[in-house]
Write a protein that binds this DNA or RNA. Sequence first.
DNA 1: AAAGAACTTAATACCTGGTACTAATAGCAG
DNA 2: CTGCTATTAGTACCAGGTATTAAGTTCTTT
Lengths: 189, 189
Amino acid sequence: MRVPKKERQRLLQETIEHNPFIKDEELSKQFSVSIQTIRLDRMELKIPEVRERIKHVASEHLDEVKSLALSEVIGDMIDLKLDDSAISVLDIEKEHVFSRNEIARGHVLFAQANSLAVALIDDELALTTKAEIRFSRQVHLGERVVAKARVEKLRRDGRTDVTVESFVGEECVFNGEFTIYRRGEEEQA
Amino acid sequence: MRVPKKERQRLLQETIEHNPFIKDEELSKQFSVSIQTIRLDRMELKIPEVRERIKHVASEHLDEVKSLALSEVIGDMIDLKLDDSAISVLDIEKEHVFSRNEIARGHVLFAQANSLAVALIDDELALTTKAEIRFSRQVHLGERVVAKARVEKLRRDGRTDVTVESFVGEECVFNGEFTIYRRGEEEQA
DNA sequence: AAAGAACTTAATACCTGGTACTAATAGCAG
DNA sequence: CTGCTATTAGTACCAGGTATTAAGTTCTTT
């Protein structure tokens, strides 16, 4: 029931990490020590009180809401010439990778490329109808992917061919041909 | 500066909604009334105290973390025979669609299909190397997409061909051929 | 103008989950 | 036994409230 100090502090750290809502009193029961001991432990480990922990979790939440709204286009658009070419940048973070090997999921790279291809189209409605894509190299956590899109052909039937190539540094990691359907304002349903 | 009760309560509601972290004291300054008035207002409007509000925001956050972790596979897997076939279901919600026309983004359907194809592979490492996809019908907010994946060919070189077809009701809305690279445990880098 | 209702402010006791500090005690090594 | 670490106890104080009672202040309505 009762473990030595070092071990207890390790467990305390873990416990709080995975349940930031837990109060000192409950912790003291869990480790069979006094509430003061828990407080000394928190001090040594620089773990703030429960209200501060909760506040922190909550404010992270607000940040995320903002960044989700930004993800209309996945990645940051840094250049856009409508019906011509566009470039976006995406930093690969935890939520983009498989946890077991930290390699970016295919649909993340696809999403960046697809969003860019759609954003490139200067019309009211733009939807992907077809794509042919290749993943030529694994992309790892922390790497920065630069996607470059270029309009290849504006067809008469309202379809546009766009090619996208994505790079990490000099290396091409992904490329694809997209066919985008478009429709102007006047023809809306 | 000073507004009538009804108006003040409306503004109070809004203010707290978009900044749940605000304390009664600050609110009382903002509306030029006493702190007690703010508290009466909160009671009438059944708005809890600041700590409870923060707790609520934070716990929503934890829910999201869980559901993000679940999104290893996008959509719910309802059937899986490794190296053979699999089925997943995805309900199209707000975050999946373009806000202007409520049509699902292409990369959402791709993500469902791609995740399913990867999950199908019975190996340590599985990555998409190539895909050819077609979007045959628009998918709208609220619709339920059922994706069916089937292994077509297990090649000797460690690549596997998988086809995925996605349906809304009887209608095929998406289909694609994926080539998945795989590697067993013994060959890991 | 007087009465009454609705609204606002004040004052006080109490609560939770702490901080900050001081002091006492337990357990063990040299 | 001395000295040291670890633990426990106790007290004063704080923020941000709840809950309650009481006392104004408006505004309206007759």
